[in-house]
């Protein structure tokens, strides 16, 4: 056992932890905006996957990072609007709608990947661009802290900035007030002329853009290539983080870090002599466990109030 601890309390592990936390933070923040408007977006998994592929393709065809970024975000928006249209306008149940989006995305990405590269597994055969890593002046020279916090990908730092942007958006701006009102009591919002459906469209789009960033992080930062089904449930883990953080940006940020811890741990454990399947299973088992512990805790605090 001590071996594990020496791995965990290493600079490498903390660095890895932040690396694997980034996509979950980004997507979970998106889920917060959506949830606050009263929509649980179960199509996040598919949205991430689509953006992960189209980001790579954009940078390949456009021969640069910017076209990749633009196409990635645009594709995520298109998928989100599709979800929004079917859920909000055609009144499709959000679970079914989300599942449909995920099924569609899984097929479409492989189909397009094969059309472009001739292969169904990864995009390794085409040259795509990645988001750069950033060394932060001063911070990078501090021992240990600098090694852990500096040198991360641009999107990682962007995720931290976006945490505060989302907080500002939700709690300080008119749009945020409207999103919260629509989510808590849509009839009240409607009665003062706030277009509920339009506000939800906007919230789902914001969520889509954030999920797009999370997806692109996987194929253009975490790894330099797209691989089929590479999101591997991260969209759902982000939803779990959003639920566990009670759709509060700070709480969700912490929950995302908790789930990412196990993801990071599974990376470390691969070195130890534990069957690979158990290591791979860990982030999912941890999510079930995390959600359960959170729910038990919530049930107990409700009970305590009673007595």
């Amino acid at each position: 056992m001590p071996a594990i601890f020496s791995y965990i309390f290493s600079v490498d592990f903390f660095f890895m932890w932040i690396r694997v936390a980034t996509p979950i933070i980004l997507v979970a923040l998106g889920a917060v905006v959506c949830e606050r408007s009263g929509v649980v977006n179960l199509g996040l998994e598919g949205t991430m996957l689509i953006a992960a592929l189209f980001g790579v393709l954009g940078s390949y065809f456009g021969k640069g990072l910017l076209p990749g970024f633009l196409l990635g975000i645009a594709s995520a928006l298109v998928v989100s609007l599709l979800f929004a249209f079917f859920h909000l306008v055609l009144k499709a149940n959000n679970v079914l709608c989300g599942t449909a989006i995920n099924t569609l995305a899984a097929g479409l990405t492989v189909f397009v990947l094969q059309m472009v590269t001739g292969e169904k597994g990864t995009s390794a055969s085409i040259k795509s661009y990645s988001y750069p890593e950033v060394n932060i002046p001063i911070l990078k020279d501090i021992p240990i802290l600098g090694e852990i916090l500096s040198g991360h990908n641009l999107l990682t730092y962007l995720a931290i900035v976006l945490l505060f942007v989302v907080m500002f958006l939700l709690f300080k701006t008119p749009l945020g007030l409207r999103i919260r009102a629509v989510g808590e009591n849509p009839h009240a919002a409607e009665s003062v002329g706030i277009p509920v459906v339009r506000i939800r469209f906007i919230a789902i789009s914001i969520c889509g853009a954030l999920a797009g960033l999370g997806g692109m992080y996987l194929s253009m930062a975490y790894l330099p290539i797209f691989a089929r089904d590479m999101t591997a449930g991260r969209g759902f883990i982000s939803l779990a983080a959003c639920a566990m953080g009670r759709a509060n940006p700070i709480g969700v940020f912490v929950s995302a870090l908790v789930f990412a811890f196990f993801d990071g741990l599974s990376n470390i454990l691969q070195v130890l002599r534990i069957p690979a399947e158990f290591v791979q299973m860990m982030p999912y088992a941890a999510t079930i466990l995390g959600l359960t512990i959170y729910s038990i805790h919530r049930a107990h605090s409700l009970q305590r109030k009673h007595s």
Binding site: F86, C97, A100, G107, Q114
Partner: peptide
Amino acid sequence: VSREVVDIIQGVMMLLIAAEALLG
């Protein structure tokens, strides 16, 4: 044409069937 076409179609069908307001 690769077989994943069928996943795309299934996704679209699911969307359309779930759309309760379609023809409402």
